[in-house]
Design a protein around this nucleic acid. Structure first.
Lengths: 342, 342
DNA sequence: TTGAAAGCGCTAACAA
DNA sequence: TTGTTAGCGCTTTCAA
């Protein structure tokens, strides 16, 4: 335990209450409550005495009790597949910044790709009575949907789009992104394509859309490589090696499910003396901070994650205020950023 | 709001209480409470009826009320400088995994490098009455220390070491890491060194220790470059360019405050046709997932972040159980992983 | 401007 | 094995 100077017993300011402050300031507990929530309703002198008492005791209000009494916890539950994935963590960063500035705190959980685990996490979070929930993706178990609807609080689903959100959603179309990449590749003159994809549902949807479109454009469906493991530079290198083994034609464009993969392909190509994009071209996904600085720089699909996080936060804030908010579907889109790798 | 089928009014299962479940099961609220916390103390038939009622109503216990009544929130507050920095997020990942499996939830906040903001965040978190707090680093404002000590709960400071933790700490010595890099570089035969450092207090301590040691070994203090911005591949490239402009001697070893910088130097060197490590050698920090797969692979300082997170979790769990835990300082160490860049 | 009273939904004794 | 009684520390009326 964090221990106070030996000898004195822990003040455990969890022990100091509004009533204590009131006693010190010569008022009742209610007045202290008012001083904190609506200072304008308390006389200046009283306010001063109360503030003084708070300072002297180091009083920290008990938000648990406050939330119980008011049924507003000022807590937002956020569930992401992974915090170590920069794509989600940067989105979260923008989101929490705004929520924080409005007095909300974030309870975060990682849920991986397992719907069962997501359901458990949702239950655990709902037990804390959050004022809203942020979920990643739009596919959730019926059980999860039910709990969320029952909770009767705003829910925002991010990083994907659906016509039937639980409440509202902010994202972009992964299918469109895949198709846009295929159209770009075709128009840029590539006549052979391949895909490298991580084991993730949305990544697969991008890949499928890419393969469908490029296949119908070129007449032959691109070869695909799936990586169960997380997308890393190392697996990107391995992917190019494997593609080459399989006899990939020179001048093929490889559509990757993440910039990590793409960078790996760049590194492996360089190690093999292959020229990019002449011998092999690469399209990434995510436009991570390194994408513009690789050699050659990465052509990739960019999602403005800052903006996405901000729109998600605003959607919730809006719902806190509105009486009967409409079911909001916010498409924040994406851009194909052409650089030098394709 | 997540809305139930039109027409029916929101069950808002925040509305279903233990008393409601009791009524349905023909028992009092207390028995329901027991059924949930110590099912062994409830008869099998009663238990069955209660569980049935819970299932039918979709009841979710109110953890706010529970925490208020028991003064145990099963909440852990975690404060990290940044969630988008993989170094902290992977540590957090391991930490929360364990805490979660013991029934604790994490409340996360980013606090950047601003002590003022950290203090605010600590106050906000303490108001939720967490059962413990995790902090990054060992330098905190006097105000922050005071609040934490007053709270009387376990506190673990991670990613650094001190003789005087608020409560306990789990980390490694940044000074030792810097010196180890200098010793390694000297013994590997490098006679000229430089540093590239992000604007971060711990990074600077590593750099200073490196420069001191290498300086006393070689007789001349290494040149240093500071980057205010976050460590990115792009700034690593820029760093090498700048170092070269400044007339860095061939065969210099560059000690970076992160693997991102180091990778940037690798990329820039390749782009300039410089051989690594012959023309310029590089030592990174962090051993991120890409470090083993770069070309050439990165020599870097590795911290077992999984392990660190685990030890931090165990330290807290221990303190929850122990009567009078000793002030624990856990040095998890680091290893200099030699690969091909130096 | 302040206070009194009630209650948020639980847990923790203590009884029966 | 179950129930009764008291709170936990606040917010929310309503009254003064």
């Amino acid at each position: 335990m964090a221990r106070p100077p030996a000898g004195s017993r822990p003040p455990r300011n969890g022990g100091v209450t509004m009533a204590d402050i009131g006693r010190l300031a010569g008022v009742t507990q209610v007045t202290v409550s008012r001083a904190l929530s609506t200072p304008s309703k308390v006389s200046p002198q009283t306010l001063e005495r109360i503030r003084d008492a708070i300072r002297r005791t180091g009083y920290v209000p008990n938000a648990l009790a406050g939330a119980l009494a008011s049924s507003r916890s000022r807590l937002i539950a956020a569930l992401v597949p992974s915090v170590t994935n920069i794509v989600y963590s940067s989105l979260l960063h923008a989101f929490s910044d705004i929520m924080w500035s409005h007095g909300y705190q974030i309870m975060l959980s990682e849920v991986g790709a397992d719907p069962e685990r997501e359901e458990q996490a949702i239950a655990a979070h709902l037990s804390r009575r959050p004022d809203a929930v942020l979920l990643t993706g739009v596919h959730h178990s019926p059980g999860a949907r039910l709990m969320l609807v029952n909770a009767g609080i705003p829910v925002v689903e991010v990083w994907d789009l659906t016509e039937t959100p639980i409440d509202c959603c902010v994202g972009f179309s992964h299918e469109n992104a895949g198709r846009a990449a295929a159209d770009f590749a075709w128009q840029a003159g590539y006549r052979s394509a391949a895909t490298v994809t991580a084991a993730e549902e949305r990544a697969r949807r991008r890949r499928d859309a890419f393969a469908d479109r490029f296949g119908s454009l070129s007449g032959s469906r691109p070869a695909g490589l799936d990586f169960g493991r997380a997308a890393t530079l190392g697996s990107g290198r391995a992917a190019l090696a494997r593609l080459l083994e399989q006899g990939m034609a020179p001048g093929t464009v490889v559509f990757c499910s993440s910039d990590q993969f793409a960078q790996g392909i760049l590194v492996e190509a360089a190690a093999r003396g292959l020229a990019v994009p002449r011998d092999v071209a690469v399209i990434g996904f995510g436009d991570q901070d390194f994408a513009a600085s690789t050699e050659p720089s990465l052509t990739t699909i960019r999602i403005d994650r800052q903006h996405l996080g901000r729109v998600a936060a605003e959607a919730l804030l809006d719902r806190f205020a509105a009486e009967a908010p409409g079911p909001g579907v916010h498409d924040v889109g994406f851009t194909l950023t052409r650089r030098n790798s394709a």
